[in-house]
Design a binder for these strands. Sequence first.
DNA 1: CGGCAAGATTGATAAATGTCAATTTATGTT
DNA 2: AACATAAATTGACATTTATCAATCTTGCCG
Lengths: 235, 235
Amino acid sequence: MSLDINKISVKNSLSSCFGTGLDSISGGDEFLSLLANHADEVNITADNYLLNEGELAEYVYIPISGSVMLERTASNGSRQVYAFLFTGNILGLSTSSIASYNFSAKALSDLSAIRISRQLLEDFFRRSFEISKKYHTRTEIVLSAMLDHLFVMGQRTAHQRLAHFLLDMENRLFCHKGQYNLPMSRQDIADYLGMTVSTACRGFTALKRKGWISIASNSLITIHDKDALEHYITD
Amino acid sequence: MSLDINKISVKNSLSSCFGTGLDSISGGDEFLSLLANHADEVNITADNYLLNEGELAEYVYIPISGSVMLERTASNGSRQVYAFLFTGNILGLSTSSIASYNFSAKALSDLSAIRISRQLLEDFFRRSFEISKKYHTRTEIVLSAMLDHLFVMGQRTAHQRLAHFLLDMENRLFCHKGQYNLPMSRQDIADYLGMTVSTACRGFTALKRKGWISIASNSLITIHDKDALEHYITD
DNA sequence: CGGCAAGATTGATAAATGTCAATTTATGTT
DNA sequence: AACATAAATTGACATTTATCAATCTTGCCG
């Protein structure tokens, strides 16, 4: 199956997130072309699951359009959202090739993604050490991002965590003059940051009152004072 | 330099921790022997740092005796402890070969560790895909453990997190009839679990009052009712 | 063995966050 | 545009956790 590589955005290469730019794992165009010739394209509609925790981890995915949320739900119903992934991010990194997925992936919007068999990926790695190295460096970057998130979760207040999240999204989403659209609900944000929806809402309100952000239509966020936010999250 | 491989414990292979058993990354004895012939041994005394955040990441370490704590301290003094590592655990996994350490490693006790150059490790990987695969599977297991910890941090109360920690330590430390010695201070535990020392202490007291644990001498813990603890942490 | 210093525990209180219900606002449909 | 529905926000109150100081315990060292 053929695929137009140019469709894959290389934005979102930054910071505390699971996936980062596809560009960063390529061993030059050679790798991308290789993948493109062996990748399927999958499409699912909003609110459906691309994969489920516990399923045999057969594929790695890269969203072409739309966004995805990685999550785990416990038996008592509590849910932790692990990450939000956007176009060009890689999904499936954290799963060993012999094991099953340790999270579920839910589409936040209608989604197109390319899908590469882990077996095939492994064959590429076997043939090219350089490609293997790029890919594994990428995994290590994800681990590093997890450390950042863990720090914030353990050492910051609910409102600070929210401010941190908004700055992170400003880096990763398409943003014009400090304005961007959040693709996830308040509940998703709350479950990502380990707080209730009420607390998340009060956080938004608090940041608005300080004049650091404004909210036009629930999902449309404008950052007015990035410096203040950055200072706020470090205490 | 020569090294007695038998000194390296293969316990601690379980659960939510950074490093896990060295056995799991070996490509059979061949790999261990290879490393042993190229490894240095380093020794440092309790409370000193094996490596510091920001330093060029030149080595991977494996403690032979003693234990280590990985941590990050922010400019305002708040500290997140990322992991406790014991003998046989691998230290340095989460750092890309071209970057610097993204945490510091502090000895909890007098420590001996073997030290392998990342450059050398990479040479091994280049030569043997199988060794590379084992190593990177190990990294993915660490990432998976981080997800477990993140879930607990985001979705559980302070006392539940403490109970979870005590069960984890029971798996990983030398334990006889439910009794084991914690090598870290209350402050370290609190910083690992994202709470204050006071809250950690109250947690210990609460678990004692329920009759699920007892504490002989601050560091000597006995688990009396593992089932109750396991039920407690899932709500 | 006694005394000291550091670490651990507890108490009183304040602050942060959760709970649950009411209300408001946004979104999608005719 | 009006409605219906779901999502977001807020208020009142309960619970959890932090803060800070006092007290107790442990481990260490002479």
